[in-house]
Every structure is written in C-alpha cells, then in structure tokens.
Nucleic acid binder design. Structure first.
Lengths: 342, 342
DNA sequence: TTGAAATGTACACTCGTATGTACTGTTTAT
DNA sequence: ATAAACAGTACATACGAGTGTACATTTCAA
C-alpha cells in the first residue's frame, strides 16, 4: 500500500486471463469476435487488476489524443471561464479533455502545441496571427477561430466562429442613440502598458461604425483610452463629465469599465440614467449586482461553446463545417432606462 | 499548400542529413557526443523540414507527458480563473501545459485522468473523495490538493495546500465583531438544487467557530441558506432585515452574495455601513467596483498558484514537499468602515 | 458429403521516440 | 609499447497499444 505499483498493461491482463494480448484488445475495443467465455475472463481480469488502457499509447498508434486545446488572450475573465466551462461539458461527453493556455505568440509556443498532437485547437485571441493558424492547419490539426468570418479566406481545417463582438458593439451604441444620447464616449480597456486597442478591435470598430452610420463624428473626445488603472479611468471619466460637458452616454468595452464609469459619475453627482446613460459588454455577473443595474450586451456563451466543439469534432471527423456568426443579446437594465415622463 | 503534409519524423531528418536516427535523437536531446559537422547537418535538416519531436511518442517512451491537470468544482469563478492563469504561467515556464476539467466525481472520470498519463494533478474541490486522491497516488501520479492539511494523513505523492478558506472566514467574522457587530448572519451559496453547504465547508466552519469562540450562538436565524437564485437571496435578506431585526452584520460566502445582500439592504433603506456592516470573500473585482466598496478577504492567488506548481514539480522529481497553508489578507473597504464619530 | 461462410484466435508489424550496449577509431597516460 | 580513457556511431530493444492478415475451427446450405 502506498508503493508505486507497476503500471498495469494489456500483457498483465492477457496473462491473468490466459489469453493473448490481441484478445484483450478486442474485448476492450469491442471490435472483433471473441468467445463469450474468454470475454468474461478478460473482463474479470480487467476488474481485478484495475487495468485502464494507456491513452498515450493509443494516441501514438491511433493518431488521436482525444485532447483539445483552447488558446485565449486573457483567461482571467468571466466570459472566458464560462465558455471554457461549457466547452468542458460538451467536450467531455464527446470524449475530449481540454487544455488551456494563454497565448504566447511565439514560434516555440506553436511548436509546443503541434508536437503535443492535439486533435483540435480553439483560438480566441484577437492578436493571434493568421500565419500560426495556417501552420496548425498544415500540420493537419483543425482549428476553430473565434473571429468574424467575413473577409477571411477559406483554409482547409480552419473554421471561423463569430461571437458577435462587432455587431454587439453596434447594437449597444445604437441602443444609446435610441435612448437619446448624442455624445457617446467609448471607454477602452485598462492596460498596464497604457496601450490602446488596435484598430482591428471588434468592439471599437463597432462603436466607430455605428456612430458614423448615425451621423456622429468620432474623435479623441469620444474615446477614453490608454488608462493603466481603475483610478486613471475614474479620473478621466470625471474630467470628461465635469460641468459643461455634453457627454450623455457611455459605452464600456466591458462591464467592469462601464461600472467604473458609472461609479465615477455618481461621485460627482451625475445621475444615471437621468443625466447619463451607460452600457457595458459581456453580461457579467457584476452587471446584475450593481445599482443601478447595468445594461449590457450578452453573448450566447452556451451556444458558442457548443458550436465550437461541434465544428471541431466535425473537422476531426474529416468534414468541413460552415462558419457561423452568433447574435448577441441586448440586456436592458436601469442604466439606460428612459426616466418616467421622458 | 493546404494539403495535409505527412508528419515529419526523425527518420526523415536522418535521411536528409545522411545520418542514423540515433544521431538525430542525440542532437535533439543534446545528451551524447556528436561530431560537430554531423550536428550541423542535422540542425539544418531539422530547420528545413520543420521537424518537431512528437510529444506523444516521447511521453510513451519517457513516461512523462509534460502535462498537468487541474480539477476544480466550478471553474466559472474569478478566483479559479486567476489561479489557473497564474498556474499556466509558472507551468509553461517549467515545460508543462495545463488541462482543465470540472470534477465529475465518477470512477470513469478517474480512469480517464489516470489513463491520460498526466505528470501531476491539482485538485481544488471540496467534494473530491480522498479515495480518488489515493487512487491517483497509487497510480504513481503526484497530487496537490487544495485543502487544509491538518488532520490529513500523510500519503506518498500527495501534498496539501491550504488556501486559507477557514482562517479567512474566521478573520472576516472577527473583523465584523471587532467593528461592533453582535448579530452576524452568514449567507450561503446559491444552488439550483437548493442544497446547503456541507458541514465540511471551510468557510461555514470558520464562521461557526469564530462566532462561538466569541460567545455568540449560531442558529438558523444566523444562516441564510438553500436559496436557488439571486432573487431568493434578496428576498430572504430583506425578510431578516425588516424593522425590529437585530441583524447588524453580514458575512457573504463570496463577494457576489455579499453584494446581493448589500443591495437588498439598500432597497429597504438600511445604510451600509452605518446600520449594517457587510463583508464578502474572494477579493473579486466586483468588491472594488460596487458602492460602497465591499470589504472582503483575499487569497494569495499568485503565491498559491506558484506553490502548487512548485510542490507538484518537486513530487514529479521524486521528493516529498512540505504541506503549506497560506494566510489570507483582510481588505477593508467602506462596507465595514467605522462611521465618523462612532 | 463437401465447400463456403461464419466464428474465433494469434502472429507480427506499426506508431515515433529514447537509450543500454557494443563497437570502432583516436588520444592520453604509464 | 601497451593499456586505458575518450570520442563518435549504430544496432536492437522498449514504451503500450491497434490491426492486417493468416490460420483454425465450427456451422450451415446444397
């Protein structure tokens, strides 16, 4: 007891059951005729020895590892963990285990992933180079990329899944405009390095496009960016809301930023939603816990997760699935409500 | 282009470089004398063919998969995702990739994990049976269990890491008492099935023990449990806070619950912290975003993650590390502040 | 009765890599 | 000069499983 037991292999089972290793294999995989009596002896031996076929050996022989890897930018994030959690459910039922890795964006990282012989890869990272995706594809590994598929050129074993970042952002901005906002400000992410969202950031593009489609110009005055901490965001928002400002709507890149903005407004006596309407993105739990309730844009996480796994398993099975784009859901709460008598 | 390329193997490299496969192996692993000139030829061939040693074959031969699995109860949770994220960092640098799986708690699940030949397992699940942990140990796989190690019997290849749930809960309750609370209520988790935290729940035990250590009795009136939704919690909290109630402190099992309680209080006109003090657990982002700021108990996530990986790598290397218990950090914000002139 | 079909078993090879061991040729110490 | 140490290479085997193929035995139809 407590000692490392030698690994139990097929050979041990065969010996105990008094049959050949081949028979054991057939019983385990249930894919050949085996005499009933021998089958029972094998099953008995498997139970007695607590034998479990080694998945690594199977992977080597069968070219299938039954593992999927999910590569994301920032896995610390309610949205991602929900997605992962859901994927885990579906994947496990399909016989897969999920590995998780934040994007390292180096050739060594790509080699690591390829050499580990994953059956499939799911990438959710705005900054993940298409070049790497194609390397996966060429290595024979199917990839599902969380990205809008329009304008993506078709590559074998690569499927695109749009999660609605762009259209969701437009929906949010449209909602603010419909609620009467004329001077909407976008709050960009916090980055320790003070970076600004790249122009291919879907939420930002959605903001810009919807603003312009409604005849509003977007300039530096309508974007808060480059902040390196919650405090900086708070200060910057307050600065823009000072008396005389015409800002009447705020769209936060995520719910956290929207909350910070909303709180900042409260601190200088600006009423939400009466004087300022705020909307976030992600439908994270904070949006329903804060007061006033934060309007936000939700993504269909369960469906997205299921679709990702489905698309991947299809590709693993050899067929090429259709790309998919998902709709978002606008969730209206108090922060954008029309005040009574408005 | 786009076609599945045959997998590049050592044999291909050997052929192109005009050497034996053995030499290729020696160059790759850099563990034998190889003539400089041949070494260069091999390196050249590796580059040309874009060869990457197959990790599955290596795992089979070398008994090391360079993969770790993290088994948790609910991976949808800011605390867990932070831990995972940090572990990913440390593990990757140590050459490991992390798999993630929510606890299934069935023998089949255990078999799945064992058969996949992980080098190590990290378990963070209150409901994970010790029996299973011992099965891992017997299969020769080191396990780090997020659990207080007192009263745990020593098992080879099993190390315990206390994250401070128990002491942290006591600290939170003590803080409320120090702030003058005499009637503290504990808010238990929301469960779709209306379940109640089992008696071995660390936070609940901490609450009970600290209350009793201070001479306060714990009864049904001091515990809100069995709620199946945010709304139920809100209603129940309001019910207990109605005029005439003596409740003056609330300890939420996590920050979300504490927020719900705090909001509920606000809805019936009870001032926090003047009339009611509230503290949560987890130091999740919501605690700094809500108004008033929520006092909470933080865990040393980075240290915990690093320690988990360290302990695991030590065990993988064959030595038995010391168990560790981590302290929590009390984070005081407005929700338990002493009002001016108190 | 005879041959074909169905049933049942096992050898031998394969997946891609690591390495113990043996072997050859060269250098160094005695 | 001779042995010992070293440099450099390659064969053969092992890791744990899956399966093509060949072979043996039984069942069944004609």
């Amino acid at each position: 007891m407590g000692e490392t037991r030698e690994r139990v292999t097929r050979a041990d089972v065969a010996k105990l059951a008094g049959v050949s290793e081949t028979i054991v294999s057939y019983v385990i995989n249930n894919n050949r005729y085996v005499a009933k009596e021998k089958r029972q002896r094998v099953e008995e031996a498997v139970r007695l020895l607590n034998y479990r076929p080694n998945n690594v050996a199977r992977a080597l022989k069968g070219k299938r590892s039954n593992q999927i890897i999910f590569i994301a930018d920032h896995i610390t994030n309610e949205y991602f963990s929900s997605i992962v959690s859901e994927m885990d459910r579906y994947a496990y039922d399909a016989g897969y285990l999920i590995s998780l890795c934040s994007n390292r964006n180096t050739p060594e990282f790509i080699s690591q992933v390829i050499s580990r012989q994953f059956d499939g890869i799911i990438v959710s990272s705005a900054s993940f180079p298409t070049e790497y995706v194609e390397q996966f594809s060429q290595a024979g590994i199917p990839v599902v990329v969380f990205r809008r598929w329009r304008h993506q050129r078709a590559v074998e074993r690569v499927a695109y899944l749009g999660t609605g970042l762009y259209t969701g952002a437009r929906e949010a901005v449209r909602h603010l405009i419909n609620r009467g906002c004329r001077n909407v400000v976008y709050i960009d992410r916090i980055s320790a390095k003070g970076h600004v969202s790249p122009p291919d950031d879907m939420r930002f593009s959605g903001f810009v496009d919807e603003m312009e489609a409604n005849g509003f110009a977007v300039g530096p005055e309508s974007v808060v960016c480059g902040c390196r901490s919650q405090e900086e965001v708070t200060e910057e928002v307050k600065r823009r809301l000072r008396t005389g400002s015409r800002v009447d709507g705020i769209f936060g890149r995520n719910d956290m930023l929207a909350c910070i903005a909303m709180t900042a407004a409260g601190q200088i006596g600006i009423q939400v939603p009466e004087q300022l309407r705020v909307i976030g993105f992600d439908d994270s739990s904070i949006s329903r816990l804060i007061t006033p309730g934060l309007s936000t844009v939700g993504m269909k996480k369960e469906k997205i997760a299921k679709a990702a796994i489905d698309m991947l398993t299809q590709m693993i099975a050899g067929s090429q699935p259709e790309n998919q784009d998902f709709e978002t859901v606008l969730i209206e709460r108090e922060s954008t409500a029309v005040p009574a008598g408005f």
